[in-house]
Design a protein around this nucleic acid. Structure first.
Lengths: 145, 145
DNA sequence: ATCAATGCAAACCTTTTGCACGCGT
DNA sequence: ACGCGTGCAAAAGGTTTGCATTGAT
């Protein structure tokens, strides 16, 4: 069975990009946080904590590239740019429930769009944004202790 | 009948703030764009186009204040800060359909939250974000000409 | 060997802050 | 007259760009 990193590196190469140390490290760090969004500046900081020689320019540039390749998802939350590794379910449409405490992301099975399509007669819906925030079951338990 | 600006100025005064020329002008510009979100930097630019002596510091500071007073709504879209005058329906919970072409905002009558509350057992939903984007009926008509 | 990717420094854009002056109350 | 609000300049924070050097293929 292929790992998510193997799949990702394949996509990077197929995109015509070279597999540098920096890109490998970035993919590793992203993969470690597989199921959560990470603040981009935190990712950048953590990256240069692990590899002090790496420049933040490289982090930003590559996240951009990965984003174009569909390997990471970007989102804005609380005015911050957040980033998440996206390797499987590549083309599936879904929304998220995001835990404010641990940052874990759960995919929702339902898309609320259907309920709204008939509400705005004559218009054309081309995009939508839907996210839930709160405490996941685990963190809810911890919080009530 | 009271105008939205009159209502807004009242709220500003009641908040303990002075009614300066700059604040009046800002409220006017916001009121002109009553039903749409405006990019904050655009608003800033337009403001100093109309009143070249006004400093952008003042725009940002007052938008902040207005936001705290509930007079403007802020939102992030495409990585930009957008701002909308909010005078009536002050405390009503609602979501938006936002036209990508003319920027007009329509309020939706339904909140999709209800459909999702039972989907994540054990967790606590504390916030959600939901916006639709597209072309409003008017712009859809224009687009198909 | 080639050309893309990196690191560095500097620019950039949006937003915030400190401070002396001016204006609304 | 008092003190908040303004303008200015400068800083801050995140992100992008230009360019010479390094490194993957």
């Amino acid at each position: 069975m292929e790992t998510t990193i193997e799949r990702a590196t394949k996509i990077v190469k197929q995109g015509g990009f070279k597999l540098t140390k920096q890109r490998k490290s970035l993919l590793e760090l992203l993969a470690e946080n597989y199921q959560r969004y990470i603040d981009l500046t935190d990712l950048d900081g953590k990256m240069r904590e692990l590899y002090p020689k790496m420049s933040y320019t490289t982090v930003y540039r590559n996240i951009r590239e990965f984003s174009n390749l569909g390997l990471v998802e970007e989102q804005q939350h609380d005015g911050k740019t957040e980033v998440k590794f996206q390797c499987d379910d590549l083309h599936q449409h879904h929304h998220h429930f995001i835990c404010n405490r641990c940052g874990k992301v759960q995919e929702l099975e339902m898309c609320p769009l259907n309920f709204f399509e008939e509400q705005i007669p004559g218009s054309t819906i081309t995009g939508h944004q839907f996210e839930l925030y709160g405490l996941c079951a685990e963190c809810t338990m911890k919080a009530t202790n």
